Amino acid sequence: MAEHKHALTIRRYFDACNEADYDKLVSCFTEDAVHYFPDGLPDIPWRTADTIARKWQWCVENLGSQWTIEKILVSHDSDEAVIEWTHWKGKLGTALRGDEWYIFDKESGLIKEIRAYYASPADKNVTINELVSFDYAGRGYHLEPLTHSKAKEV
């Protein structure tokens, strides 16, 4: 069975994030897209495809960010999806796990809204922010970032 078009868009978006590829990032979003986050980050929410792309480029450059997708669920009756991810911050030696809710534009199929939810508050005293006592390894989750040849070139 072929992967759903919304899942393919999400995978393309994460590849673009890991590659810090501005044009590829922007191509995943409607021009007026919004990315919402929990409290604690400056200048949120991020509004417009341009802003989202530039912020993720900054994260790759300054934090050594890489992301892995752990799970994707796509709605069978609406233009929505939810994913579980890990944000690896290589230069800080930390990681954060969480979920995102995606809303897609019905006509274009592009992402028009993302709502991010963190597995836990970003605790600066732990190296990987994740659920306490959850068996990440046993459930097949990534325990380190993937190596991306394009990401290394950035």
Rank of each mutant, 00 (worst) to 15 (best):
M1K: 14
M1H: 13
A2M: 13
A2D: 14
E3F: 08
H6V: 04
H6C: 11
H6K: 15
A7S: 14
A7Y: 05
I10Q: 11
I10D: 12
R12T: 07
Y13C: 12
F14T: 05
F14Y: 14
D15V: 11
A16C: 06
C17F: 10
N18Y: 07
N18L: 06
E19M: 02
D21T: 02
Y22R: 15
Y22D: 05
L25I: 06
L25E: 05
C28R: 02
T30H: 10
E31L: 10
D32I: 03
H35A: 12
H35F: 14
H35W: 14
F37T: 00
P38G: 01
L41R: 14
L41D: 14
P42A: 10
P45D: 01
P45H: 01
P45K: 00
R47F: 02
R47Q: 14
R47G: 00
T48D: 03
D50E: 15
I52H: 03
I52V: 06
A53K: 06
A53T: 05
R54H: 13
K55V: 09
K55W: 03
W58R: 10
W58P: 00
V60E: 01
V60D: 02
G64H: 01
G64T: 04
S65T: 15
T68P: 04
K71L: 08
I72A: 10
L73V: 15
L73P: 00
H76K: 14
D79T: 09
E80T: 15
E80I: 03
A81L: 05
T86S: 14
H87C: 13
H87T: 07
H87P: 00
K89F: 08
K91M: 08
G93S: 01
A95H: 04
G98F: 05
E100Q: 14
W101D: 10
Y102L: 10
Y102I: 02
Y102H: 12
I103L: 12
D105A: 08
D105F: 08
K106Y: 00
K106P: 01
K112R: 14
I114C: 13
R115A: 00
Y117N: 06
Y117H: 14
S120K: 08
P121W: 00
P121S: 08
D123E: 05
K124W: 03
N125L: 07
N125P: 01
V126F: 12
T127H: 08
T127E: 12
I128Y: 09
N129L: 00
N129I: 05
E130F: 03
L131S: 04
F134K: 12
Y136W: 06
G138Q: 09
R139P: 00
Y141I: 00
H142G: 07
L143W: 03
L143Q: 15
E144G: 10
P145V: 00
L146H: 08
L146P: 03
T147M: 01
T147L: 11
T147N: 11
H148T: 06
K150E: 07
K150V: 09
E153D: 13
V154Q: 11
V154P: 02
